[in-house]
Amino acid sequence: MTEVVLTVNNPVGLHARPAKVFVETVRAYKSTVTIQNLSRPQTKEVPVTAFNLLQIGVRQGHQIRLRASGEDEAEVIAALTKLVEENFGE
């Protein structure tokens, strides 16, 4: 399992276009990826889907933990890290 903790800094958080890019990136890999919003302690760790991203409500400044397991787990985490760190190109 590969794991990373990131801070989301783009203005809309993980909603709208960033959410779309995020989900599509996960779908492009074989590994299962889960996400937890550490800044909302009451939310659970959930698989990355469009609806789950809505319900864990990641806003600007929130910390998220991503966990991937599967044959390309390192690659998918690297790709997602890049998206988040580069603010989804906003």
Binding site: A16, R17, K20, V23, P47, T49, A50, F51, N52
Partner: peptide
């Protein structure tokens, strides 16, 4: 426009 893309994604969402 992005909104409709986001909804298209939800239409095919795994939870649903």
């Amino acid at each position: 426009a992005d909104l409709f893309d986001a909804q298209a994604l939800l239409v095919e969402d795994e939870t649903l």
